[in-house]
């Protein structure tokens, strides 16, 4: 199968750079898949997981916290403020973050509901990506 260049970059470091066969990404308007020679596209990403398949058939998963996917003639770039490969996720920390977000959401007096909701969603996706639940 034809491959294309995928780069996943965050402000802290480049998470992945290499050839892949296909990528699935959580678009803001629903998930989408990208194969080689896709039409150029700029898409906003939601909090969720990116799955890509390398040429040798191995699958990799990462949890991303929103951002952009830029598909152009020379490949695809995922820009995210945070992105973690499944094997690098700190399960304990994600659990703590999820519980904290849940308790904030149940407290009605909170002003920052959107933020707590986003935190909950980030933590849940991190746990789901590394297969902890």
């Amino acid at each position: 199968m034809a491959t294309f260049q995928l780069d996943i970059v965050t402000p802290e470091k480049t998470i992945y750079s290499g050839d892949v066969e296909q990528v699935q990404a959580p678009g803001a308007d629903g998930g989408f898949g990208v194969l080689a020679r896709h039409q150029p596209m700029l898409a906003a990403l939601a909090i969720g997981q990116v799955v890509f398949t390398q040429a040798d058939g191995t699958n990799h998963k990462l949890a991303v916290s929103g951002g952009f996917a830029n598909v152009s003639g020379d490949g695809m770039t995922v820009l995210a403020e945070t992105a973690e490969m499944a094997q690098e996720i700190d399960i304990e920390r994600a659990r703590v973050a999820r519980d904290r977000a849940r308790s904030r959401l149940s407290d009605r007096g909170q002003v920052d509901m959107d933020r707590a909701q986003a935190a909950l969603s980030r933590a849940t996706w991190r746990l789901r990506t590394c297969g902890a639940e």
Binding site: G27, A28, D29, F32, Q39, P40, M41, L42, A43, A44, F68, S72, G73
Partner: peptide, 13 residues
Amino acid sequence: SEEYLFEPSPEVL
């Protein structure tokens, strides 16, 4: 000049 798809829309992006 490339034909670009924007998702959801350029404004939201």
